[in-house]
Structures are given as C-alpha cells and as structure tokens.
Design a protein around this nucleic acid. Structure first.
Lengths: 212, 212
DNA sequence: GACAACATACCAACCGGTCTGTATAAATAA
DNA sequence: TTATTTATACAGACCGGTTGGTATGTTGTC
C-alpha cells in the first residue's frame, strides 16, 4: 500500500470505479447500472474499466469484496466494542445499526443485500462474494453472543451463529421495508424489535408476572 | 370477472404475461427480465404485450398488484385462520410461512421484495405498488395481534402494526439470506427466531430462572 | 363495420465488450 | 549517463447484439 510505484493520478481508476460502483449499484441496482454510466460517475473511460475488470460481473465480484473491506473497517472502528459486558456489546451493535439509519436510502442500505437478490440465479461468483460478505460480517458477532450465552447461563435451542445470522436477516428485511415505504422509520422500528428480542433471550424477567 | 366477453384463448395474453412475469422476475430480477423473453415465456408476441401494457414499467406495476391478489387468496385459504386463540393464529401464520419454504428459491421468494429493491429509486409507481402489497399483507395480521395483546394483557411499547411489519422484515431478510447461501435453511432458522420472539412477547416465563 | 385482441416487421438507442493507440515509468543494455 | 526495451495504465473509436417501444396489418366478435 505504501509507496505506490505510480503517481496517484495514474493508479486511481480502479479505486474510483469501485467507489462509484458502491454508490451507483445501491441507487439503481446492478443490472440497471451500465458500464458506461459507471465510468462517467468514476470519471474514467471504458478503456480503464476493462483494463481493471475483465467483465461487468468481475466488477460485481470486486465491488462485493470492496464492500466487505469498507464495512469491515467501519464496524471495527465502532464504539460498542469497548463495552465490557458481551451482551452490551451485542446490544451496542444493534443500537449502532439503528443509529446509522440516517440520510438518503442509498447511504445506509446494504450493497450486497441488493446485489445478491438480483444475481443469485445468474452469477454464482457474485452470489458467493455477497454471501461471504454477509456471513463473515455476521460471524464477527458470534464470539460476543457465545460469551453472553455463557455469562448469562442461557441454555438455548438456538446457536450463537443462528442468532448472528438472524440479526442480518432483520437488517436486510428492514432495508427492504425502508425502500418500499421511502423512509427509515419502519427499519428503525424493526431494529427495535430485534433489540427487544435479544433482551428477552438473555434476560428473562426474574419475577413471575403477577395477576393484574 | 364472470362471463368474459371473449373466448379464453383470445383473452389469455394478459394473464399469461402476468403469470410469466411473476416467475421470471423472481428468477432474474426486473431489469434483467426483458420484454422479449417475457413474451417468449408467456407464449405471446410483443404486439400482445404492448397492447395490454403501455410500457415495461406498467407491467411492473400490474405484476406487483397481481402478486398481491394471488398471495392474498393463497393466505386467505391457509388453515391457521381456523384457530380460536388469536396468538395461535399469529403463530400459525409464522409456522405456515416456514412450512412453505420449499422447492427452488424462486418458488418461495417474494416478488415485491425483490422488485422494490431494484426500482425504488427509479420507478415511484412500481415502488408504491410494492409497498402497498407488503403493507396490506402485514395489515392482515394486525387484528389477530391486537386481539392477542388484549387477551394476554400485553402492555407494550410496541404496536400491533409495528410487530406485523416486523414479521415481514424478518421474512424479507430471510429470503435474502436464502438467496445468498443458496438454500432455505438459514431462512427457516430466522423464522424460528421470529416465532420465539412472538412467544416471548406474549408469554413471559411465569417462574424466575432458577440458579444453575 | 367498429372495435378489441392480437401478430409481424421494424427502429433508434443502448448494451457489454474489443480494438488499436498512446503516455508514462521501471528495467535493461550500451 | 543515456538509449532502448518492456510493461502498465489508461483513452477513445468502434462493433454486433439486444433493448424498450412503435407502426401497420390481420383476425375474430358483437
């Protein structure tokens, strides 16, 4: 990464294309994003595009991987990791996901969730890159969940892995509702339900519900 | 609806196009489904297509509405409505959703969820038709949820409407995970979590968790 | 004969992808 | 140090196929 052998101006194209791809695909979807428009957005020519990517699908794979890297760093830097209680870290993650539901839809929506819906039947390579992105993101929650299960003595029919994946399902579904309704409010409400579910899983009420 | 003024063979085209559209869009997405291929699948010509739909987007709107009708009838005929307890009807709905996670992905996946992800930024008409489909489907759960809340004396921060929408978020997200992983297993696991959440909401454990 | 329900031929725009050319810089040879 | 080669990183014209959409004709029904 350090000391690129070429001046930045001549090495930028690939990065600019990936950055533009994240934005454009999140706005319009994959199939509706043409290579020409992608190049125009990135400020490069078609020659640059096909120099760096052998096909549009190859760009799709690279975009999904780039998304993984970018979001990986973004969440790694989030504040909830500093919490001591593993359950609080998990809930902190959920709160963080809710907190970033801001701005325009393409700004908080998930690239790979959009992407995989479109291409799961036509491009196995992109599909796998998307699956890897989602699954590996979920996997980062597993240690905290497992630790919380041990700490709170939760004996469950469900696994830490399945709960981690469930959080992603809720988030992905929340994005769809947000796109349908045109706002983030429904998504936030669903994230609230997710938080409540996690609280209920780990902290069953200690006293019996009293009769009215 | 009764007594079509023309023999079926000459009135079929619209229906055949809509039926083909549901299948094709669920397989490949909206943008990647061309009018030509749609016509080929439906066994009609392009002339028939543009006789019944003024544009591809108009077909998109009609497909979303058709989806609403088809699924509306499908769920109206489902067995869980016969249950007496409103909570059991709600859980019966969830169980039913899990039970139909069978066969190939395009067979149990949601048309409007796929559709709205692609076009929310480019076609307000289709987006609205999709939103209507999802929201009105969710709305059918509201009476049962409200009834269950009253019956089980649930005093909640959440509303029946928000829980109904949350079920749809979980389902939509489960479909995305299914498409990413290539199988329905993850989706079923998420539906299990949804069921557990609803149980916890309505039936908090009456005895405190005993030590060890 | 009026009108709906198609069928067929056709079109300009756009699509992903290729081709050839060129500027730049590192590697090599003198 | 300088000349030459080689490789990279583009630029931009071009191409055949596909796209959504149209224009015109035909057929069956009231």
């Amino acid at each position: 990464m350090a000391n690129p052998p070429y001046p930045a101006a001549r090495r930028d194209a690939r990065q600019k294309l990936l950055t533009a791809a994240l934005a454009l695909i999140r706005e319009r979807g994959y199939a509706a994003s043409s290579v020409d428009e992608l190049c125009a957005r990135a400020g490069v020519t078609k020659g640059a595009f096909f120099h760096h990517f052998k096909s549009k699908d190859a760009l799709g794979v690279a975009a999904a991987q780039h998304w993984s890297e970018v979001t990986g760093e973004f969440f790694a830097a989030a504040p909830y990791h500093a919490l001591q209680d593993p359950l609080q870290r998990l809930l902190g993650y959920v709160d963080f996901r809710k907190a970033i539901l801001r701005g325009e839809l393409p700004e908080f929506t998930c690239l790979v969730g959009t992407l995989v819906q479109e291409i799961y039947g036509t491009s196995p390579e992109i599909r796998e890159a998307c699956a890897d992105s989602i699954v590996s993101h979920a996997a980062r929650l597993v240690p905290d969940i497992a630790e919380a299960m041990a700490l709170y003595r939760v004996q469950a029919e469900w696994t830490a892995e399945s709960l981690a994946l469930h959080t992603q399902a809720v988030l992905q579904g929340a994005f769809i509702l947000a796109k349908a309704t045109g706002g983030a409010a429904v998504a936030a409400a669903s994230v609230d339900h997710l938080r409540r579910y996690i609280e209920l899983l780990f902290a069953p009420p200690p006293v019996p519900a009293k009769e009215n």
